[in-house]
Design a protein around this nucleic acid. Structure first.
Lengths: 144, 144
DNA sequence: ATAATAGAAGATAAAAAACTCTTTTTATTT
DNA sequence: AAATAAAAAGAGTTTTTTATCTTCTATTAT
């Protein structure tokens, strides 16, 4: 469904949301440890997310990544678009360049519904929602 | 969503369904040409599909691939499972090994619905349906 | 026998994922 | 202020996976 990079990005974003605010920050090592992702690869992804302003960062001692109120408003779709691009919005499931409403591939209309469903899910769930849900301890981000 | 192999497999299967029956067969070259897929790679995928009995094959002059009535009953899900495996059925969207109903990742229940929708679509559309639809010339498999 | 075709194995290429090392920035300490 | 150390940023490398191509073998209709 999503690339590994994107999976890592989503997990990292949810973890940062849960752990930080304007004052407290969290470092790459802690993020990686708590999301079961490779540290250096995660660092690279965080750079990208930071460059695209989905997350804030600060260098130096006690530096790290953190989120503002505004950042908590990012949807999963925003993360997916930042990392994997908008392929799931516009690409044909069978990879046909010319596939469109007027010139549809055999599965075009069937998948249209599936995609609509998927897209509405990722657009309607923002990072803030997970922060709240996680506070109840109902969810996990790490393999045991 | 699916791997390239899987995209090619679906297109090839639909093409074969459309063009053949127990008597007429179609060769790899023609399949590749008409589905915009790399010939040799497609040949390899067809070997796999043939080994798994999703499509029939015959060697020799006038040989090629073809489908029986039974083969027309294969669903897209059957093709996906044959080529990409059952990852979309069982893997966590965030790649968490330990994710389950009892131990869910943050997006588990949201994606459950999306997956259900996707799975029902690929299970309820079989190759035969496309054969009929294609006969009306409403769909295409090739970039222009 | 011959030629056309799929099957199989393996080589090569390209892309994605993962890791390493160096540089830059900046808060803290002196 | 200057020095130090912590941390992100960035560049570059290696490894792994996926995709593609090549070559050879087996089968079968003519």
């Amino acid at each position: 469904m999503f690339s590994k990079s994107c999976e890592y990005a989503i997990k990292a974003m949810i973890f940062i949301a849960q752990k930080t605010n304007e004052q407290t920050r969290v470092g790459v090592k802690e993020i990686a440890n708590n999301t079961d992702t490779p540290e250096h690869f995660t660092a690279k992804i965080l750079q990208e997310l930071s460059k695209k302003k989905l997350v804030q960062s600060m260098k130096g001692p006690n530096g790290g990544f953190f989120m503002t109120k505004k950042n908590l408003g990012s949807s999963i779709a925003d993360i997916v678009k930042a990392i994997d691009g908008d392929g799931i919005y516009k690409d044909c499931v069978l990879g046909l360049k010319a596939c469109s409403e007027k010139n549809p591939c055999p599965v075009h209309f069937e998948f249209k519904e599936v995609k609509k469903n998927l897209i509405s899910m990722i657009e309607n769930n923002n990072i803030g929602t997970f922060k709240e849900k996680l506070e109840g301890g109902e969810f996990f981000l790490k393999n045991k």
